[in-house]
Design a protein around this nucleic acid. Sequence first.
DNA 1: ATCCTCAACGCAAACGTTTGCGTTGAATTT
DNA 2: AAATTCAACGCAAACGTTTGCGTTGAGGAT
Lengths: 343, 343
Amino acid sequence: MMKRITIKDLAAELGTTPSTVSRALADNHQVSDEMKLRVRELAHKYNYQPNKRAKSLRTRRTDTIALILPEINSFFVPEMIFGINTAAAKNNFSVMIFQSDNLLERESELLRYVHSLAVDGVLLSVTEETKDVAHIEEIRQTGTPILLIDKLTGTSNLPGVSINGFDAAYRAGNYLAEHGHRKLIGIFGNPSLTMTVQRRAGFEQSMLEKGLLNGGSCMIEVEQILELPSVLDTLLHDFADATAIFTMSDELMVHTHFELTRRGLRIPDDFSLMAISDGFAPYYLHPNITHIHHSGFEVGYAATSMLINNVLGKSGTKERKVLVAPLCQLQSVANLAALPVVS
Amino acid sequence: MMKRITIKDLAAELGTTPSTVSRALADNHQVSDEMKLRVRELAHKYNYQPNKRAKSLRTRRTDTIALILPEINSFFVPEMIFGINTAAAKNNFSVMIFQSDNLLERESELLRYVHSLAVDGVLLSVTEETKDVAHIEEIRQTGTPILLIDKLTGTSNLPGVSINGFDAAYRAGNYLAEHGHRKLIGIFGNPSLTMTVQRRAGFEQSMLEKGLLNGGSCMIEVEQILELPSVLDTLLHDFADATAIFTMSDELMVHTHFELTRRGLRIPDDFSLMAISDGFAPYYLHPNITHIHHSGFEVGYAATSMLINNVLGKSGTKERKVLVAPLCQLQSVANLAALPVVS
DNA sequence: ATCCTCAACGCAAACGTTTGCGTTGAATTT
DNA sequence: AAATTCAACGCAAACGTTTGCGTTGAGGAT
């Protein structure tokens, strides 16, 4: 177990001072080429690694951002982390990950905690409980940039990046309508999330414009995924003549897909299925699910780049950024419009 | 933008010194109850947050561990991160995440980098390229505990935690054999991974003991998931009378499931399907896939607990720990043994 | 010979904590 | 009354860096 070697050790062995060694390693013009060479050789010989903690104490920069998210699920989140990590790595930043477990209380704690960690910025995906943003503003006032990611607050107008949920659901509705589907079932998640509100609104707007709102279509929200089987039982009975189902998320999609095939219903023959999805699960299911691609990678990458630019002072924009999600046309939606219309 | 308030500021306002404030906040017996009260009140009034970087510089403890993994996929990894995070949070530790992109070169860089970050320990999931462990030992010699996680090295005997892949695959093979399957197809991943070697060996051992090795069964390795469709084409043709398929991972499982259903083959009527899985995807697919549950959460949690105990000096064990993966019996395996045996 | 310039380096403070040790004054003991 | 004890606090160094400024000496200009 070797002692960790410091700049002082190098200085002592070279018969110089820490300041010169520091400058030499930083390639400062104040030190001669000869000295730079000697320093570098010794540093390499001892495999010297600068202590970034000490450095950050002095420079007040840590090159670290914190990511706080409600939970780590298997759909959207991994890709988002991937995007965040690559953007961070590109800028030589590190990222620390924390979970709020969807609890406002824990979110507040973590915000204070990362502040004590003196990170350069924080990426925050708010919990379902987060309405008031006092705890966020509290940290923000200290000068630590905070950027909301994916899950934004509804009431406040804090800067953040996410996809345009309204638009995504709106275009999904249009796609179904344009493929001749007149009776739709829309399945949504927890209604207390702004994400749900927006997507539902977009879908509703589409149905309104296409004149599908009051003709055997329906929209429903399931808070717990466990409720889905029984909800679908009711739905498939009450709206048996619906031709297409839309789900606002991957989780709802895979479970809906499962429930349909479990009942022996075929996709897209008996029901068409469409979703807003991260873009992976659609390829695991048969037939591949037509979806609006909500890329976790892009959201993560864009948000992290913005935040770091903010930290580096390259950018002063503190706006909300919404990404548009492209449509990915696969095999789960039947084109009824191609058939002769029965009047 | 308020200046960050420090222990000095508190001391100045209270007419005392930083040392007393520090002790007061630490509830040290050397300071009077009255002073403690005054300090706490002021600290609360100003919402004082101690600077952990400064603290860690002095105490030589950062309460942070680093996690380095080859990639962030959607199957095993998210749950493992979840497990790591909860174990860390329980001990008031933070975790930083880095990706090596499955490159040995990058792994070395990251190892040096996290060392310069002065983390208290590191969780390392090695790349497929990692044979030599010099770069790992280099950091280890400095006193930073390193624990391998999930993906271990084959040659060296560095401490680590993972599941018993041999045993998992062995029991999967037994399960299939005991359910009357005599001709099996085993599908495995990249053969250069020790994980693959072990699982394959376990499956082979089972087939050997059950006498299935040379009777129309086969084992195959696919390096790239993209190869799977064509590989299955060949397999299903050459081994058309096989009754069960085993896949060593989630990724192989979902794609195999897809390829089967795409071809109109029914599970388990035409083929039984079994896998080693993280335990989520089996429930998305129909029918639910019988699997050996390789819990990412448990692996992550166990490893992190071990590492932190090591950091805290509570434990000196530097062994390898293998977890056993329980069998989860669902609907994808037909019981042929219940049928009368045709002689 | 004197002055100025400038390259190359050292000194020391600072970042915000923790902590060993010394100091103070009051209370207790003899 | 002198000595001892002890609670409560301050001093200063230290953790490993960075950085403003001062110092040194050599070389060139006058």
